[in-house]
Nucleic acid binder design. Sequence first.
DNA 1: TTGAATGCAAACTGTTTGCAGTATT
DNA 2: AATACTGCAAACAGTTTGCATTCAA
Lengths: 137, 137
Amino acid sequence: MTPCAKKPTHKPPGCRTSAVRSAMLKSLTTNHCQTAEQLMAGFPKNKRPHKTTIYREIVCLLDNGLIHELNFGDGRKTYELADNRHHHHLICLKCGWVHPIFMQHDLEKDVSKSAKKQGFTVTKHSLEFFGYCQKCN
Amino acid sequence: MTPCAKKPTHKPPGCRTSAVRSAMLKSLTTNHCQTAEQLMAGFPKNKRPHKTTIYREIVCLLDNGLIHELNFGDGRKTYELADNRHHHHLICLKCGWVHPIFMQHDLEKDVSKSAKKQGFTVTKHSLEFFGYCQKCN
DNA sequence: TTGAATGCAAACTGTTTGCAGTATT
DNA sequence: AATACTGCAAACAGTTTGCATTCAA
């Protein structure tokens, strides 16, 4: 990982090869979207890091732009790898399964125009679909 | 308000004319979307109810289907009057201003079809637009 | 008079901060 | 050796629960 551009004597925060950090990123590669709790549970019991570390790593990864924070309406924050491909999600209301979906649309363009008339500038949007996954159906 | 169908000796929870309840509903009529904190702040200081009461009323109003819970990605839960007209929101990232918008689209229909192929049943969706309002622009 | 509504204290969950010890560069 | 990383304890914010009191019907 090379999120930092500067080159001081020592690597700045967020740039070392730390076991927890690598494991979290790897975990997010496997499971697209995870909460802090899920990220923690991803570690084997005997080498599970402290929750403080998990939270701190999340902040660090967010700061370095490696992950994004999402929120699916029930209040729990979830995290996914930063990915420049714009996408949305299918979210299971029962088990919390999350799946990215890609679709073409001009939603933002349409709304931006009318919003602008009210003096509102649209900078981004979120579009999430809720329902029940294959297992929970 | 008549959310209850039964007719016991006494009115069941959520059906009495309580000062706090009425005031909260009235407040939501004026300000479309509010958090628990905002609902509390809506009361004049000298007759502000206890936070416990606010939270309990929110649960009660949700149970009786009088309000809906929303979540705008920053973790804070907001509430709006239940309204059967499907709509979305413009949300100011700076001051938290929220404004409902109505638009025609077939988003759900399109996605439902492809999701169904993966065994996922879409039951609802959320679509929110973020940016900066007139004041914060 | 009954039971819903309210206030207060305390518990609880998720998250953050301070500080000291450990590990990477 | 310098300092990022980690763990632990404690603080913190938002929310919920238990219990006693007040109020609407």
